[in-house]
Design a protein around this nucleic acid. Structure first.
Lengths: 108, 108
DNA sequence: ATCGTTTATCGGCGATAGACGATCAACGTT
DNA sequence: AACGTTGATCGTCTATCGCCGATAAACGAT
């Protein structure tokens, strides 16, 4: 008894945590999560205060794990939080801390 | 309005997520969290199946962020989950996802 | 004092991460 | 058609990660 957590699940969770393993990305996600409407890259760059290429890289990493979603608006691209992750990411934190996921969490 | 999350807080959260940015560490923490009593390094090595030095390094990283605690038992060292983190780490995940921490969480 | 056991630390390796400036691609405007 | 704006990608740099074998350190037992 007391097996290890399934390796594939552990890899998925680790990829989520790795996406937030940088303080700038933590700030970006938290910032987007508190904003109902999507924001352009320029707005995010202004808020963060790093180079545009750097912010773009961070946004790429966050979209790869689907923490944020993109939609093109004309020549701009608007980023917003993925509401599905708002629910299932904290429950992943619960699982790692030994509490089995309470909700159905079919989202992710 | 809509300021960024405080940089110091973001750095603390990022360090927590970075500690779990590796699937092996996810498995170690989840494994310890489901075990009420502390475990020796040898037992953890047997469960994980990597080299002893590798596991020891992972345990060092996890103790640095205080996800796990150590106590020396004779010549051995027993690791166990830090119960304080069981509560406050998932609430950090909530904060990043835009939900202000509900509990007082004076633990961490 | 010498083993054997248990765990931490060191050194090295290839791989990945984060930052930046520069460049490219898309597109609306003049 | 040339231009300006917006954002992604490239190339480079340095730093850190994750793994391993080898070694060191602590300590109980012989």
């Amino acid at each position: 008894m007391a097996e290890l957590l399934d390796r594939t699940v552990a890899q998925t969770y680790a990829s989520w945590f790795r996406a937030l393993a940088d303080p700038t990305r933590v700030q970006i996600v938290e910032y987007l999560a508190r904003h109902a409407q999507a924001m352009s890259v320029g707005e995010i760059v202004a808020a963060i205060g790093l180079a545009q290429s750097t912010v773009s890289q961070h946004l790429k990493i966050l979209t790869e794990v689907r923490f944020v979603l993109v939609e093109p608006i004309g020549t701009a691209r608007h980023y917003r939080i993925n509401d599905a992750c708002v629910g299932c990411f904290p429950s992943a934190a619960d699982v790692v801390m030994g509490r089995p996921a309470p909700s159905p969490n079919g989202a992710c």
